[in-house]
Nucleic acid binder design. Sequence first.
DNA 1: GCATTAACCACAG
DNA 2: CTGTGGTTAATGC
Length: 227
Amino acid sequence: MIEIQACLICPFKSTAAKVLSDDELTLMGDNCAQATFKKSNTIFKQGIFSSNIVYLKQGIVQLHIEGPTNEQIIKIAKGPTYLGIPTTLDEKYNRYSATALTEVHACFINISTFKTFVQENGQFAYEIILDLCKNEVNLFNKCVNRVQKHIRGRVAEAILFFAHEIYETDSFDLPLTRSEFGNFVASTRETISRIMTELHSEKIILLKGKHITILDSKRLHLISRSG
DNA sequence: GCATTAACCACAG
DNA sequence: CTGTGGTTAATGC
């Protein structure tokens, strides 16, 4: 279902959108549509013409790329956050895909409207840049860790990521299958399976299917750090 | 050489 | 989809 959005009264405004004037927010609302996606629906797809800035209001999504051999999950993001600024502003076609991992509410903002704000409202542009900077630094770290840590460390890091960044609790349901988890940490479903049961029998986590409870956060951090 | 790590394959719930 | 066992290639000591 698509509906016109009243950005002015949106409770999920981005930090950047908060600096827009009422007039600008009204203009944004006129050039923006919200849509709801069910779990595992595609929000936008690699290779397809990109025509909107996508803003994730609520929900969890995975950003992923079809690599030379495998599907690779680049990032898992939770709303509210922008989803596809790099793939939209710079590129004619999406360079990666976004898929809903939970029910998702997302807004599609007209590119030229977005560009106008960037060009005419310095504060808005600054907030967007800040966001992109944080993202880049974050991904640099993830990149180094993916290459240099052993899988045990990468799995531990991923579990801590879900606990701290996504769910903000030590007990949660993984939104990924083992094989997707493998894609996320650059490994395979078999290895993930083994490491997880290992961590379970070492009483570091409690594992029941997709449900994970962190029992020994200290040791998990240790494993994550020492790789 | 010998041990370890982690992918790949295969088969079974 | 998941778990487990065997095999195997790469790397380290």
